[in-house]
Design a protein around this nucleic acid. Structure first.
Lengths: 209, 209
DNA sequence: AAGTTATCCCCCATATTGGGGGAAATTTTG
DNA sequence: CAAAATTTCCCCCAATATGGGGGATAACTT
């Protein structure tokens, strides 16, 4: 584990900026470099700040959002690890932040110990997350057990979402083209749709596939 | 938080079974119910064991795999939380287990304290994961920053993977059908493929979309 | 100035799609 | 055990989509 990981804060609440500064300053293995009020203020300084880790508030009052901020940072400095700090645990916001490149997501309720533990977790190769966030992320993998679709129909629908044609599905599942068509017709009637795109949209939104 | 969460173990190593039993028995808030060598042995007893949590080895020597085991358990008893225990941190195995319905995934190196902490994490609504697993799971959301595709091309390819036709893509992106076609042609030439399915497969495997 | 990106247009032959019908064998479930 | 669901296969048809070929312009980046 390297010494003196350099930390930069982007957070619009002045009081919280101060808190984070104190907490990080109190531990040898982390070096507080700078704190900024928003992304626009921070970005021109990143080149000389050379942070290893950025703690970023996701709901910034002024300028671009935390999510856009992560995208920018990861595109210019892919090695920087960004941990999002948020009051919300809204699923879509969490997933967007992670897709944008965040390495962790913790809620603002985190106390002194938890913040340091999150940084330690990150440095040892993990991904710091609050309990609820972890559950959200894992639940994202779970499929809906109340799917009206049979296993075979799910197989077929998955292949449709991979852009496969009836013929390709037939070849891959070792069935005839007519059988794929029958499955698809039954999928449409069960989901009450009548096209590939509607079926995919419906199935994904209800987590059937 | 409820008292006496009931725990069942499915693990083929007799020594480990004993360990888990001791660890769980040593804490008031957990009640060790039974330990089984494999899924076939365990399943007929689940109805009367009524576990709240099952600790399941993912690599069982005999009978069905841990992953198939989770699928069965979640289909019959959706309220039971299953935590996978594994020596491996192979990405595909982790994701399969999570898709199958696991609520957590920890590695066997976990010591006494870590096992209890994992159970506590689960009970308070979290999802226990080892560091590496958490990073794997989060990395799964990250897209490849070295995509040869432009932003617009990624938009188009995402819509293709949702089963949309040229016309539908055009309508949704407020461009003409011919423009969608041009984008798709350029995507094909950049990815060196010549069909929707190949493009989706390529882009997903390289995490371009 | 050169390259990339995003937009639009034309032509053409083949493949795919969605909808209609029916049927038989197997498996699951009540 | 009997009913229901699932999985498999077949035919017909018209409208649409697809992939490949060609070319073009404006805007933005490098």
């Amino acid at each position: 584990m390297n010494f003196h990981k350099r930390i930069v804060i982007i957070e619009d609440d002045a009081e919280l900026r101060g808190c984070y500064r104190l907490i990080i300053g109190s531990v040898d293995r982390y070096h507080f470099v700078n704190a900024y009020e928003n992304c626009e203020e921070a970005f021109p300084h990143l080149h000389k700040d050379k942070p290893d880790i950025i703690l970023m508030d996701i709901n910034l009052f002024s300028g671009i959002s935390g999510i856009e901020g992560v995208k920018y940072i990861k595109s210019k400095y892919p090695h920087i690890e960004v941990v999002m700090i948020s009051v919300h645990d809204d699923a879509e916001m969490v997933f967007e932040a992670l897709r944008a490149g965040a390495s962790g997501y913790i809620t603002k309720s985190s106390n002194y110990l938890e913040l340091i533990q999150s940084l330690d977790e990150l440095v040892k190769g993990g991904a710091p997350m609050s309990s609820k966030i972890a559950r959200l992320v894992i639940s994202n993998f779970h499929s809906n057990p109340n799917s009206p679709l049979s296993e075979r129909e799910k197989d077929v629908l998955k292949l449709i979402s991979e852009g496969k044609s009836y013929t390709q599905i037939a070849d891959q599942l070792f069935i005839s083209k007519e059988t794929s068509k029958t499955h698809i017709k039954n999928i449409y009637s069960k989901l009450e749709v009548n096209s590939k795109s509607e079926a995919i949209e419906m199935a994904k939104s209800k987590k059937y596939i």
